[in-house]
Design a protein around this nucleic acid. Structure first.
Lengths: 108, 108
DNA sequence: TATCAATATTGATGATCGTCGATAAACTCA
DNA sequence: TGAGTTTATCGACGATCATCAATATTGATA
């Protein structure tokens, strides 16, 4: 389950001037990365052997309230950085590598 | 003239769990990228033949007030994304490619 | 020194953000 | 169906942010 289309649409930042529309499409994704708790969530997922994590595990390991974690997960999902899948009671989140690669491309 | 040491210090996001200190060091740099006007400034600099731009040129081309542009430039300078140099009356800003490369590395 | 041009800072504003408690919703299983 | 578990949403709060007008600062030049 994914949400936003990848930012792959956009030229690299350094290859010609961005239009207003382009900058408005890319900026929110970087802004989502601009929060320590969210970076920790991403790295926590990457550190899992299965490359995925249940939301409730993050609540324990981040030391944040459950609604706060849910809020961060929602933002990253909407930014196309995370995919989610329901299995039983739990919801598993995993990284969307394509979106991370797209961001690398924008920076290069 | 540069300010912040590169975020090159940090392991890639996907190579093991970030410490709180690491995430708090990296996040502000991404947050600075999370604003359309600032992305436009970066791309505007990259689009210049000389790879640099005078602050006053940006005021004209961005359609923002001069204090606003100065504010954005300051944030990017402090984030290590821009370097500046005074020549005569004007101050020229250019990209710090090392910092952009460091961010790519964090994402990969 | 005085004036001018370019940039930075200050102070104020409305808007957005991160956080949490309380509550709702979704799903499983007995 | 009903109880239990997991996740999402709501409402409110303090804090931070982007923006601008006004003003200060810096450096060049007459």
């Amino acid at each position: 389950m994914e949400s936003r289309t990848a930012v792959t649409c956009c030229r690299p930042l350094l290859a010609g001037r961005l239009t207003i529309a382009e900058s408005q499409a890319i900026a929110p994704v970087f802004r989502v990365l601009g929060e320590p708790a969210r970076l920790q969530i991403l790295s926590a997922i990457a550190a899992q052997p299965a490359q995925e994590v249940r939301a409730c595990e993050l609540v324990e390991s981040l030391g944040l309230a459950q609604p706060t974690v849910s809020y961060h997960l929602k933002l990253m999902f909407e930014a196309g950085l995370l995919a989610k899948e329901r299995r039983g009671t739990a919801i598993y989140y995993r990284l969307v590598q394509e979106q991370l690669a797209a961001l690398r491309a924008v920076l290069g």
